[in-house]
Design a protein around this nucleic acid. Sequence first.
RNA 1: GUGGAUGUAGCUCAGCUUGGCAGAGCACCAGGUUGUGGCCCUGGUCGUCGCGGGUUCAAAUCCCGUCAUCCACCCCA
Length: 425
Amino acid sequence: MTSPASQPVQGMSDLGPPEIAAWQKIEEKARQVLSLYHFSEVRTPVLEHTSVFTRSLGDTTDVVQKEMYTFEDRGRRSLTLRPEGTAGVMRYVAGQGAEALDARLYYLGPMFRCERPQAGRKRQFHQLGVEALGAPSAAADVEVIALQQHIFSSWGLRNCRVEVNTRGTPEDRKTVSEGLVNALRPHADKLCEDCRRRLETNVLRVLDCKNPDCGKVVDQLPPVTSFMSEVSRKYLDEVMRLLAMLNIPAKLNPRLVRGLDYYVHTVWEVRHPGLGAQDAISGGGRYRIDIGGKAIDGVGFAVGLERVLAALEHDKPEGLRAASNPVAWIISMGEKAMEENLVLAQTLRLRGIQCGLDLAGRSMKAQMREANRSQAAYAIIRGDREMEAGVLVLKNMVDGGQEELELPALIEKLVGASRGEVAKT
RNA sequence: GUGGAUGUAGCUCAGCUUGGCAGAGCACCAGGUUGUGGCCCUGGUCGUCGCGGGUUCAAAUCCCGUCAUCCACCCCA
């Protein structure tokens, strides 16, 4: 069953017919909402020059340092399987004309990170990402957060809320980290081992340490925004005010930290309870990325689709798993009838009626059982007996009633039933 | 990268402590019902016990290695 040759690579998995229906459903719903907000899809390659990521994500981030699938191709170029979507989209935008600098784009596809797999963390996983380019404004950030929430509610996602924070301007970074280090150093003895290391490498990470002792120290600190410029504080206030105006339930979380270097001003994250340790289903923020000599401003977010599906499993999948059932299942008795029924199936399908049939010559009972399993609304029975009489038996699989019809009448009836099905959904 | 748990039929799992014929439920197939599904009854099929090696008269069971999955850390979507 699980010989190495029959398994996918570690942390990667197949999506078969049982799972795929839900995937297609959430993709379709997301696309509908995205078009309401006038966003267009972009598809960039899965493989990029490594520098695309090292430059925009930051050389020292964990994603770049220890999670990327990087290798040399035959021309000895360093290539990397994309660990996230923004960098590639920015490379694309930089190659376009100036008018692309206010594009509204989204992408959907597999991302790769070579981490130790666990629940909610695959080595190949899928993200839906949105990038709204253009000069910074709180209103633009809020519009994108509103879009995100709109997509979530189209999926029927409940029990999740947005946490918002700010990273300030690029100029703020230095004062923030100096300020934090100075404020924390006197309490270094109360911090965990990891946080003492973070004091030197990445102070911001001390803020969201899960260790309760570190939390106590952090709670005593002056707010991070106090190390920032007036501009940054105003920007954050504006974002919170507009979110309230749009009735978007968002919580200011001064301890929220986002890992990638390109973020400025607004950052946010969405968590879902009941997902275990990997509970962030979406993360985003405003960014400024320098690429190809251009500085690109934008705001965006990325949603982890595997985690969304896990969250939906937890909430209530209502409506998301409905696979389309055939309208009719055709049952044949005898070889001659089976051939005629193959023709019938083709006729029905060309008329847009979804149907199935058994071509293996199995017993009536077996074929009926299959019809039942397929959840078809009707069974059509035609054997040699019906062939002689020039009729077909149409059986209603719900109430069990059946009638004999000639071919044209049967087709018309099924066309009607098929339309009814479509109208209902 | 660190620490822990698990891997037996298509699925969910028992059996492992103390080595002795490979099991249950669900699913699937057939019959009960000569051409009528779902419910019920009866019967049946399906296993390199994750993989490789070792110990032993004998290994699903004990030992070593390996691969994979899960949980937590780290980090992230």
